[in-house]
Amino acid sequence: MYSKIINSLADLHVAAEELIATFKNDRIFAFYGKMGAGKTTFIQSICRALGSTDNVTSPTFALINEYNTAEFESIFHFDFYRIKDIEEAFDLGYEDYIYSGSYCLIEWPEMIESLLPEKMVEVKIEVHDDETRTITAREI
């Protein structure tokens, strides 16, 4: 289990490094949180912590972006917010990415719940009234 309170954007880099270190053998991370909770921003920090210098943006319309680490390892970033049905995930070859052994960072995983692997890290971002956030993660 991992938990961290985020008071500012400056805290995200440390949280990203801690999350990766805590779940060092895991590659599938599912990010849950309301719209505007900071899922994409946190994923940017995770990609940096993994050594990517690529421009990390939300794949809202493309559904998937690929980034590379300094060692040319792939990081796949999914955003299923606009998916209309499960068939779209199959059409983009979702399973090939998920079972590739590469990092897969999934926003809006609740849209494809039935396709999620049994073993993954569930990351929840909760926004508080004072605009701080709590990030919790657990292996499921």
Rank of each mutant, 00 (worst) to 15 (best):
residue 2 Y to D: 06
residue 3 S to E: 15
residue 6 I to V: 14
residue 7 N to W: 12
residue 8 S to N: 14
residue 8 S to V: 09
residue 12 L to P: 00
residue 15 A to F: 07
residue 16 A to C: 13
residue 16 A to L: 12
residue 17 E to H: 12
residue 18 E to A: 10
residue 18 E to H: 11
residue 19 L to V: 11
residue 23 F to L: 12
residue 23 F to R: 08
residue 25 N to P: 03
residue 27 R to G: 07
residue 28 I to T: 13
residue 29 F to K: 02
residue 31 F to G: 01
residue 32 Y to I: 00
residue 34 K to C: 09
residue 35 M to L: 14
residue 41 T to Y: 01
residue 41 T to L: 09
residue 41 T to K: 03
residue 42 F to C: 12
residue 43 I to L: 11
residue 43 I to M: 10
residue 44 Q to C: 09
residue 45 S to G: 01
residue 47 C to V: 00
residue 48 R to M: 03
residue 48 R to A: 08
residue 49 A to K: 00
residue 50 L to T: 03
residue 51 G to A: 09
residue 54 D to H: 03
residue 54 D to K: 05
residue 57 T to E: 14
residue 58 S to H: 08
residue 61 F to L: 13
residue 63 L to K: 02
residue 65 N to M: 10
residue 65 N to H: 15
residue 67 Y to M: 09
residue 73 E to N: 15
residue 73 E to A: 13
residue 75 I to E: 05
residue 75 I to C: 08
residue 76 F to Q: 03
residue 80 F to R: 03
residue 80 F to T: 06
residue 83 I to Y: 10
residue 84 K to W: 09
residue 85 D to N: 15
residue 85 D to S: 15
residue 86 I to A: 05
residue 86 I to T: 12
residue 94 Y to N: 01
residue 95 E to A: 13
residue 95 E to V: 09
residue 99 Y to D: 07
residue 101 G to E: 02
residue 103 Y to I: 01
residue 104 C to H: 04
residue 104 C to T: 01
residue 107 E to A: 03
residue 109 P to Q: 06
residue 110 E to T: 09
residue 115 L to K: 10
residue 117 P to Y: 06
residue 118 E to T: 06
residue 119 K to F: 00
residue 120 M to H: 14
residue 122 E to P: 06
residue 123 V to Y: 00
residue 123 V to H: 00
residue 124 K to M: 06
residue 124 K to P: 00
residue 129 D to H: 11
residue 129 D to C: 04
residue 130 D to E: 06
residue 131 E to N: 09
residue 131 E to A: 10
residue 135 I to P: 11
residue 138 R to I: 07
residue 140 I to S: 14
